[in-house]
């Protein structure tokens, strides 16, 4: 069990790491294409396309890590006004709702992925690119987000602090 947990954590942080690399890639790809264009070369079209894809990967791969870090902004209005016992209940229920949303999207994302594979769907930009390589990010990301939110349902650590205001 402990090994599974370790492996899982490693996977989660590896995905966040890739998200960070994608961010740096945005900078590199833009600089390369501008430098090429202004020195009279034709910038590789994949520089442009890859930066558009990088935004998707970055957002989806990093999102579960941000759940763990409590980095998705939320407002504490009701939870701040409640007595501690009730707050615990509401906080866990809200987290449960998040698990539910993530699971629905993971399930529909998996369906979309399978559809993209069987229909042989292509994403058309400068190139014709197999769409499933991109949409695979959905079931993976929302699936992991469901796991991360469920830690706030069952674990000791609550999502809400009880202090009024917006939290990140």
């Amino acid at each position: 069990m402990e090994t599974v947990g370790k492996l899982y954590r490693g996977f989660l942080y590896a995905m966040a790491g890739i998200a960070g690399v994608m961010l740096v890639w945005l900078m590199i790809s833009v600089i390369m294409s501008v430098v090429m264009r202004n020195s009279g070369l034709q910038p590789f079209a994949w520089l442009f396309t890859s930066s558009e894809y990088a935004i998707l990967y970055m957002t989806m791969l990093g999102a579960p890590w941000l759940v763990r870090e409590k980095g998705h902004v939320h407002i504490e209005l009701v939870t701040a006004a409640l007595p501690i016992g009730m707050r615990r209940v509401v906080s866990r229920l809200v987290a449960l709702l998040c698990v539910l949303v993530s699971l629905i999207l993971a399930w529909k994302g998996a369906e979309l992925l399978l559809g993209n594979i069987t229909r042989n769907d292509l994403d058309v930009r400068a190139y014709y690119f197999p769409k499933w390589i991109l949409t695979i990010a959905f079931p993976v990301s929302f699936g992991l987000m469901a796991i991360e939110f469920s830690r706030f349902v069952f674990g000791d650590n609550l999502m809400h602090s009880g202090e009024a205001g917006i939290h990140e």
Partner: peptide
């Protein structure tokens, strides 16, 4: 030329005209 392109005509612009296409 600094030619703006898109997916519709890139096959023509780049493959034949050999232009510097800016998407």
């Amino acid at each position: 030329l600094k030619l703006r392109g898109n997916a519709v005509y890139n096959a023509f612009f780049t493959d034949y005209l050999g232009a510097q296409v800016i998407d």
